[in-house]
Design a protein around this nucleic acid. Structure first.
Length: 288
DNA sequence: AAGGCGTGGAC
DNA sequence: TGTCCAAGCCT
């Protein structure tokens, strides 16, 4: 297998985007918050919310001291609002278990609410400079094409970590750059739909290109339809409560015009189960 | 382990 | 238009 690290490192040095979390001394808390926000959410939508969030809650203890409702409100339209709740819980856990300091150890990070294989290693590598494989959807696509010769990656699997580890250089700093470079390449060149292969630093080494860009299929699971879904109903309920500015809203008045009342009630119930909504005497509000 | 979970831009 | 996609995690 060709060594992908040198061309990735050289390309990243000249082509990395200037993003807030790549600034010198951005801090582990900032990195952690950015990674939560970036889970399934585009960079351009994250940046303004991130600045606002860190300005308001500069440390985990600051966030832990705030009501969860404030976190859900500031999360605004980033989507998947459970992440706001999970980030608030993680901040509380960091305060209570780690003296308010973001832990450096991968297992300690994995034990925090809302942190999985990707986020734990992203923090350990990008905030602390340690040597671990970091695998996100971009990395999976780059490896699938360059190494396996596939047009799209297989569904995420634990084996992905070993595949990334196999191309990491020995040096911690170089390994961190290769992790970042694989993600960056997947984000701006080796994209899902219209890859810019003419601008790819791995073109000469790419197994997919060598094979003539075959369509090898895509067995990843597809997103469920959003229009008419419970998720859409949940989103509508939560938007009303976010905009209620601290006041509670009668359950019946929340999206009263929703076409399917049973679905509306089901959405409210599931939001309560998730802890995103609290009900008192039939009145709803964000969690205090 | 397979499915649930937001939101909006691009094509 | 509808479909795809976006630095995943949880149960």
């Amino acid at each position: 297998m060709p060594d992908l690290a040198p061309p990735l490192i050289a390309w990243y040095r000249d082509n990395a985007r200037d993003l807030p979390w790549r600034r010198e001394g951005f801090g582990a808390w900032g990195t952690l918050v950015s990674e939560f926000m970036l889970q399934q959410t585009p960079v351009a939508r994250v940046i303004p919310r991130l600045e606002e969030w860190l300005s308001r809650w500069p440390t985990p203890a600051d966030l832990a001291a705030a009501p969860p409702a404030d976190a859900v409100r500031l999360w605004a339209n980033l989507g998947y609002p459970r992440r706001a709740l999970w980030l608030h819980r993680a901040a509380t856990e960091i305060r209570d278990r780690h003296d308010g300091m973001v832990p450096r150890d991968v297992d300690a990070l994995l034990a925090l609410t809302g942190i999985g294989d990707y986020t734990a290693r992203a923090v350990a590598v990008f905030a602390f400079g340690d040597r671990h494989p970091v695998v996100d959807t971009n990395t999976r696509r780059v490896l699938a094409r360059a190494v396996e010769g596939r047009s799209q990656p297989r569904p995420p699997a634990k084996a992905d970590l070993a595949a990334m580890a196999a191309i990491l250089p020995e040096d911690d700093g170089d390994a961190a750059v290769v992790n970042a470079a694989a993600m960056e390449l997947g984000a701006v060149v080796c994209t899902a739909r219209t890859p810019r292969c003419e601008a790819c630093p791995l073109a000469d080494l790419c197994a997919w290109r060598a094979a003539g860009y075959p369509d090898t299929g895509d067995d990843r699971r597809k997103q469920a339809r959003y229009e008419g879904s419970d998720r859409q109903a949940r989103g509508a309920v939560l938007k009303v409560l976010r905009d209620a500015d601290g006041h509670v809203a009668p359950a019946a008045a929340v999206i009263a015009e929703w076409p399917d009342p049973q679905q509306r009630d089901r959405a409210i119930d599931s939001l309560i189960v998730d802890g995103l909504v609290e009900a008192v005497d039939g009145m709803l509000h964000l969690p205090r």
